[in-house]
Computed example of a mutant assay.
Amino acid sequence: MTDAPLYSILETRGLTMRFGGVTAVDNVDFRLRDGELRCLLGPNGAGKSTFFKCLTGQLTPSSGTVIFDEQEITGWHTHQIVNLGVGIKTQVPNVFDGISAYENVRLSARRKHIPSVAKDLTHHTMERCGITHLARRDVGLLSHGQRQLVELAMVLAGEPRLILLDEPAAGMTGEERDRLAGLVLEAARSAAVVVVEHDMAFIRQIAKFVTVFNRGAIFREAMIADIMQDREVQEIYLGKQANVA
């Protein structure tokens, strides 16, 4: 008797994205198990961010399919994907300027909960993210790293089954990055997580299994220790970062 195959919460089949004569994502087959934390690596132009945008409805792929929880979502709008239980954090923080950090997080919590429950969830999530002291601050006046943490709190307050993070550590201080690493690992206990990131020091804090992109395709998938020892990955895809991070 063999073990049943592990359930895939996210899958792409033949996913391809072309811009004119340029193929940014090339026939990618990708599977993410339920509850798995996966990091996507690769140099600028490797296709990983375009792949992320196809997953999150920011781009409609030229061909192929995206499947979440056994339902095809290819070409769906971002808000439709979020409503299925997917938390999305883009490269540029997608927050509401002009209102407080607390109100930003509360709006996310209110998607699923009555006001009293949403209030408790908002306070708890902001405490988890270490941004309680920012509660009354206008998000438009916060630093980039602080805005990153507010948006992550918004994602977590939505209690998603799948979390997709595009360069979440960008613009963060070392302390903010360490807090983020802890939050990502904590979130991975209750949700599947995909992290697209350049910061190898951050990747080393969180990664177990890694997918490396190059020229729009998956070049290598392996445990982080094996990726860091892979000379071809180091030289061609991660460059000097792999040796100094």
Rank of each mutant, 00 (worst) to 15 (best):
residue 134 L to T: 02
residue 126 M to F: 05
residue 173 T to C: 06
residue 15 L to A: 08
residue 199 D to G: 12
residue 122 T to G: 03
residue 25 V to H: 01
residue 194 V to C: 14
residue 134 L to M: 14
residue 107 L to N: 07
residue 68 F to T: 01
residue 72 E to G: 09
residue 151 E to C: 12
residue 245 A to Y: 12
residue 87 G to P: 00
residue 155 V to T: 04
residue 14 G to L: 14
residue 245 A to D: 07
residue 59 L to A: 15
residue 90 T to A: 11
residue 46 A to I: 04
residue 45 G to D: 11
residue 81 I to M: 13
residue 69 D to W: 05
residue 177 R to H: 10
residue 134 L to R: 08
residue 43 P to H: 14
residue 4 A to R: 11
residue 223 M to C: 04
residue 237 Y to T: 08
residue 164 L to T: 07
residue 205 Q to Y: 08
residue 32 L to R: 08
residue 103 E to N: 09
residue 168 P to T: 15
residue 195 V to E: 02
residue 224 I to L: 15
residue 139 V to N: 02
residue 31 R to I: 01
residue 242 A to T: 02
residue 105 V to R: 02
residue 143 S to T: 15
residue 17 M to N: 09
residue 136 R to L: 09
residue 119 K to A: 07
residue 171 G to W: 00
residue 147 R to T: 09
residue 9 I to N: 13
residue 104 N to L: 11
residue 94 N to W: 02
residue 38 R to E: 10
residue 227 I to N: 10
residue 86 V to L: 05
residue 100 S to F: 07
residue 165 L to G: 08
residue 38 R to Q: 12
residue 164 L to Y: 06
residue 145 G to S: 09
residue 232 E to C: 03
residue 53 K to S: 11
residue 89 K to P: 04
residue 125 T to V: 10
residue 52 F to T: 08
residue 76 W to G: 02
residue 143 S to N: 13
residue 177 R to S: 14
residue 195 V to K: 05
residue 85 G to C: 12
residue 12 T to F: 05
residue 116 S to P: 06
residue 91 Q to L: 04
residue 128 R to Q: 14
residue 219 F to S: 02
residue 138 D to Y: 08
residue 80 Q to A: 15
residue 142 L to H: 03
